[in-house]
Amino acid sequence: MIELTIDGKRVQARKGEHLLAIARREGVEIPTLCHHEAVEPSGACRMCMVEVTRPDWEGWSKLVTACNFPAEEDLIVRTRTDKVMQTRKEILELLIARTPGSQLIAEMAREYGLDHPTLTVGELSEKCILCDICTRVCQNLVTGAISRINRGVEKEVNTPFAEVSDVCIGCLACAKSCPTDAIEFKQVGLERTIWGRTFDLVPCTQCGAPTLPKEQAEWLSERTGMKVEEYFVCVKCKAAQTARTYENIAW
């Protein structure tokens, strides 16, 4: 274990542990947009910037991203200096200009006192801040159906050639983990549509209620060894089935 200081408080941590994790454990709030515990930190949004220094740096300090900066002995971390707050505010202004329609960004901007953004704003319909959570989740945890294509300002999240993906399993993890709700999907009855592909939700074998796409069940089956059909019972029916089983057990 090592000791470091966050906002004046001495705290303990493992050497190399990321500053964000330590701060959150200690109840120090650091804003993030591109951080998701399920995937490796990316350092793309720059909202989690903090100022670090060391006793032997002779007053010199630098801004680093808390999400991936490794803790070291005697590090002094300040999470709300003027420079930190100013940088976060500027980043929010850049994001507002990109996604004027995003509620989350607007709220965060207000928190940072950004009442009158001055930069030219883009289209209201744009919600994606390119935080890369969806693509990291899909690439690293699911089937890699989507990626960020193009470079620089042209960058966008999409399926290959913007066509219907044959590896997407319709699990909605991308849409659900998006901080700005930028990924659209639709679910009506036994149909779920995402990235231009409509999945049939398999009806519960007992009551007919929608369960999950067959593709997701197959993917799960491959990973867990359970039979595909075992996934096609809805939660309610499964619980009722469990209750019925209990009936026959002597307690």
């Binding site: 890699g144 159906a145 990626s147 294509i149 193009n150 399926t159 290959p160 050639f161």
Partner: peptide, 26 residues
């Protein structure tokens, strides 16, 4: 385009990452 799937299979890289690389580099 039709070759990209074969390249993906050969290199063991998901097609989406092949297109990401192909569109990143000019």
């Amino acid at each position: 385009r039709e070759t990209m799937k074969t390249v993906a299979e050969y290199t063991g890289v998901p097609l989406s990452r092949v297109t990401a690389v192909a569109t990143f580099y000019s």
